[in-house]
Structures are given as C-alpha cells and as structure tokens.
C-alpha cells in the first residue's frame, strides 16, 4: 500500500496554511466576544471550530488524527445545536 508515500514526512513543510488557520481562529474569537447578540455569536463560534479543526489536522499528520478532528468538530457542532435549541425553547418538557 502506498499509504506512506502520501503522508508527509516532515510536519513543518506547509507552514503558511497553519498560520492562516491560527490567524483566522484569533480573529473569529475576537468577533465572538465583541458581538452583543447571543444568537449571532454562534456563526463566529463555528468559524473558531473550523479553524481549530484545521490546526489539529495540520499539526500531526497521523491516520488517527482524522478521528480526533471529526470528534472535535461534531462535538462542537452538537454544543452549538444544544445552546441554540435551548435558547429557542425547543427542548420538550416531559
């Protein structure tokens, strides 16, 4: 299997992509805390989780990293979903 040929040998070759993800994460975090409306914060929080998922994948190229990145992204999405649904009063009261 040619799996080893496609995995980059040195993790630090593509540095500009990593820097772009880091800068966008900081920018979106600043937008999160400066936005006043509670629901309009959630798209910026989504940008933070996209950028952190990119950082996770770019820092450590290993096959298990896909599971870690997907678990982090799905967890963050589920958190946003729960916050928005509770804010809307959507959870049924038993």
């Amino acid at each position: 299997m040619a799996l080893e040929d496609q995995v980059p040998v040195v993790a630090g070759v593509h540095m500009i992509a990593l820097y772009i993800c880091a800068v966008i994460a900081v920018y979106a975090a600043l937008r999160v805390i400066t936005e006043r409306n509670s629901m309009r914060k959630l798209p910026f929080l989504n940008v933070v989780s996209f950028a952190v998922t990119g950082i996770i994948a770019l820092l450590l190229p290993h096959p298990l990293t896909i599971a870690a990145a997907a678990a982090y992204f799905v967890g963050s999405t589920l958190e946003s979903n729960a916050i928005a649904s509770t804010w809307a009063g959507g959870l049924k009261r038993p």
């Binding site: 994460a25 805390i33 929080l45 989780s49 982090y72 958190e79 916050i83």
Partner: peptide
C-alpha cells in the same frame, strides 16, 4: 459560548 472558545484553545 465563551467557555467553548476556551475549550477550543486547549485542543492544540
């Protein structure tokens, strides 16, 4: 929401 920004910073 602010706490989830904090957790996002711990991951790297």
């Amino acid at each position: 929401i602010s706490l989830s920004v904090l957790i996002a910073g711990v991951f790297p």
